[in-house]
Design a protein around this nucleic acid. Structure first.
Length: 553
RNA sequence: UGGGGUGUCGCCAAGCGGUAAGGCACAGGACUUUGACUCCUGCAUUCGUCAGUUCAAAUCUGGCCACCCCAGCCA
């Protein structure tokens, strides 16, 4: 859904300028995840920027699995990424690609660079290389002793690297740029390494793999990407990206441009920690509703529109930002308030007996599915002598400004009668067994005939027709305000909120909810927005609470 | 310590030399058969900081400060 809420986007200014220089330019962007984890709310920003930029300019958008490091990648991640991306609605109209499909090309370009004298095979060990680069980066690194070896020699060695003649780490291919550059990425970066590892798509075809900095610009150029939009940590890589594009001699040069990273309060998005949570069993899987992964948000009931509106309204700027998770919740509320049908659920039922209603009487009331939108229709709800109300809606000793049910007080049962509390029946232990009340039968679901005002309205369910249900309430994963507040050296895992999942069993729901499907969304009146769980029948996940419903006393 | 980047209300963010948009949050008030929603009202004499240029600066210049990224044969 299009939304006017859209903070700045300096990327569009850059593109407008490029188009003014070349009116023929067809914008082409891409989202290049490495298939080594599941997509999360942070990924949504990169997706949104690349997808919507292409869309805005009538261009194309590619999905490209950046799978140049076989050690960490798998087909399960490939599958999940596709699923989450299409769920978000960011259809890759430019196609779906794999970085590994360009291995042959990358190899040829590497050979070309060697022939041009722009790359050489280096035999420094990992440790020695680190030594040569030095610990003080204000100083230039030492030149590799192999830097000026004959081109023929590098060519021969590189081919033999490819043929598997050397063990892992024995040799690397390095770009010959500038060992004394201020930018350490330009100090003869390694562009190929030896890895005798099985690749999820290429199998055992290769034992040398290109590095990200070499492969990425090639992939972009080959796909005709015009704008390679990525987050700010790649800013330092840009000169190398451009060096590769220039030296290989691509006619159409893709442009890398960077936007600020987005963090979200109360959670952590690094794939490393998410994976750790999943693998140590602290959560039930990548779609555990306490996680910020897209599949978890989906299961919990968040919608693609709300997520897109969230990242869109956070804006696109160069500065990193930490957006309050409550903003995401606000986006969800905005959407659901408009679209979610209203239903009644009583979380902590207490029984109310309406003394002036016959034992077997059944009165039918019609409740609107949405108070402001008659087009959503209405439903019939049965009223009987015994009903349930929420424990929170009754107070034996009411605090000031308590508008709900209290001894001798009157309250409106939403869509039905006004009732008056007459007496309280108690159990041995002092707990409430039932409340006795009388209904104003004359007023019915209309206003009292004597003109008196009844301020409170509470929700209710017929005890005879209500069905049991389970409510799952999830709090945020972490209790610290900011992940940055976690002390240095401490494990994120120690900061898990042990109370982040609250399960309410014994709740009651209105009968019509039995017909709902997995994933259906509702506003449970005076309670919050819920989504029917996709894994468990008759249980509902809390998506977000109603704003302030219970905050005020 | 070096290089790169960023600093405008609690959180995002517009602004690009002419006297601080907007959203979220928050606080009041109105309305309400959801204490929701909706609707009003309020909310930066100030733009990290100190100087300078100018009739005029958040916008230009210089110094300083803070935060983020970089020493993978990860992406």
């Amino acid at each position: 859904m299009e939304n006017e809420i859209y903070n700045g986007n300096f990327i569009h200014d850059i593109i407008d300028e490029d188009i003014s220089l070349d009116p023929e330019l067809k914008i082409h962007t891409r989202f290049p995840p490495e298939p080594n984890g599941y997509l999360h709310i942070g990924s949504a920003k990169a997706i949104m920027i690349n997808y919507e930029t292409a869309k805005k300019y009538g261009g194309q958008f590619n999905l490209r699995y950046d799978d140049t490091n076989p050690a960490k990648e798998s087909d399960d991640f490939v599958r999940s990424i596709y699923e989450d991306l299409t769920w978000l609605g960011a259809t890759p109209n430019g196609g779906i690609f794999y970085g590994s499909d360009y291995f042959e090309k990358c190899y040829e370009f590497a050979v070309q660079l060697i022939k041009q004298g722009d790359a050489y095979v280096c035999e420094l060990s990992k440790e020695d290389l680190a030594q040569y680069k030095g610990t003080d980066r204000s100083e230039a690194s030492k030149e590799s002793p192999y830097r000026n070896r004959p081109i023929e020699e590098s060519l021969d060695l590189f081919e033999r690297m490819k043929n598997g003649e050397f063990p892992d780490g024995a040799k690397t291919l390095r770009a010959k740029i500038d060992p004394s550059s201020d930018n350490t990425y330009l100090r003869d970066p390694v562009i190929y390494r030896i890895r005798h590892v099985h690749h999820h798509r290429q199998g055992d075809k290769w034992c040398i793999y290109p590095m990200y900095d070499f492969a990425h610009p090639i992939q972009d150029a080959l796909e005709g990407i015009t704008h390679s939009l990525c987050s700010s940590e790649f800013k330092n890589h840009r000169p190398l990206y451009e060096w590769v594009v220039d030296r290989i001699g691509f006619e159409k040069k893709p442009k890398q441009r960077e936007f600020g990273r987005m963090n979200v309060t109360y959670t952590v998005m690094s794939k490393r920690y998410l994976r750790e949570l999943v693998e140590t069993g602290r959560v039930d899987g990548w779609d555990d509703p306490r996680l910020p992964t897209l599949c978890a948000l989906r299961r919990r009931g968040y919608t693609p529109e709300a997520i897109f509106n969230f990242v869109r309204s956070a804006g696109v700027a160069k500065a990193d930002c930490t957006v309050d998770i409550r903003w995401l919740e606000a986006c969800v509320r905005d959407e659901f308030n408009e679209k979610a049908p209203r239903r009644v659920v009583v979380a902590h039922p207490i029984k109310v007996i309406i003394d002036n209603i016959d034992e077997d009487a059944e009165i039918t009331f019609k409740l609107p599915n949405h108070p402001q939108n008659p087009e959503m229709g209405e439903r019939e709800v049965k009223f009987t002598r015994e009903i349930y109300i929420d424990a929170d809606d009754f107070a034996e000793v009411p605090p000031p400004k308590f508008f709900r049910l209290k001894p001798d007080g009157e309250v409106r049962l939403m869509g039905a009668y006004i009732i008056k509390c007459n007496s309280i029946e108690k159990n041995e232990d002092g707990s409430i067994r039932a409340i006795h009340a009388t209904a104003d039968l004359e007023a019915g679901n209309g206003n009292p005939t004597d003109g008196r005002k009844v301020k409170g309205t509470i929700h209710w369910l017929s005890a005879k027709y209500a069905l049991p249900t389970t409510l799952m309430m999830y709090d945020r994963l972490f209790t610290v305000e900011n992940v940055a507040d976690i002390p240095e050296g401490a494990s994120y895992l120690d900061y898990l909120n042990p109370n982040s999942l609250v399960k309410i069993e014994g709740a009651m729901m209105e009968a019509s909810l039995a017909d709902s499907k997995a994933g259906d969304k509702f506003q449970f009146v005076r309670f919050g927005y819920f989504s029917k769980d996709t894994h468990n029948d008759n249980t509902f996940n809390l998506v977000v609470t109603l704003k302030d419903t219970f905050a005020k006393k």
